[in-house]
Amino acid sequence: MIRLEHVSKSYRTSTRPALDDVTVEVEKGEFAFLIGPSGSGKSTLLRLLLREELPSKGDVYVADLNVSKLSQRRIPQLRQRVGCVFQDFRLLGNKTVSENVAFALEVIGKPRHTIRKVVPEVLELVGLEGKADRMPHELSGGEQQRVAIARAFVNRPLVLLADEPTGNLDRDISHEIMLLLERINRTGTTVLMATHDHAIVDSMRRRVVELHLGQVVRDESRGVYGVGR
């Protein structure tokens, strides 16, 4: 579902490559953590998968698309198959919860009756059924992240990318978000999550891909965050 082949990425303004000859594959339906210290290249890797950046070397494949060769015009096809959530939620402050979720469908031209049907469904899935008409500022951080996840998932992407989704949340709330991502993973969606959070990685015992200075230094199928690093 996700494949990087000898991918390197150097930003023009920095001397050290952000990613250095990375080869990783994530199967369909898998749940994988992407860990590593700050600056190790986790966000860069996710941005390559979304075609926000182009690799300097190597090839990136996501959901049968050769991402690095994708024409400008076909980028939307990729992004409609890949949902993403971030540490900072990125909700639209002037829209209600359900409008925020509906927005993701409206901008790709989905018909109104579809939107009216699937938005409540996905809000129920993320546990926000009673809060559809709240504004984002009337929600807790955990609830806001649920809205963001609902928005990322509402178009049923094949892949869900999460860049430190629990970075702004305390432990208990983080745990709930993880349960939600697990639920989404059980629907068959491939999930790749970048994180610093030892406790979460250790408690989930899922696949762990560890980056250090842009290189893959560990890839374990039921890993922990690791000690001493």
């Binding site: 979304l50 400008q72 015009r73 980028i75 939307p76 096809q77 990729l78 992004r79 409609q80 198959r81 949902g83 993403c84 990125r90 909700l91 639209l92 402050g93 927005f103 993701a104 901008v107 790709i108 031209g109 928005r151 178009n155």
Partner: peptide, 17 residues
């Protein structure tokens, strides 16, 4: 910019954005 960012990442076409 948040709207535009969300539109880009949800796969709205350039035209729609």
């Amino acid at each position: 910019r948040t709207e535009v960012g969300v539109m880009r990442l949800t796969g709205a076409s350039r035209w729609y954005t």
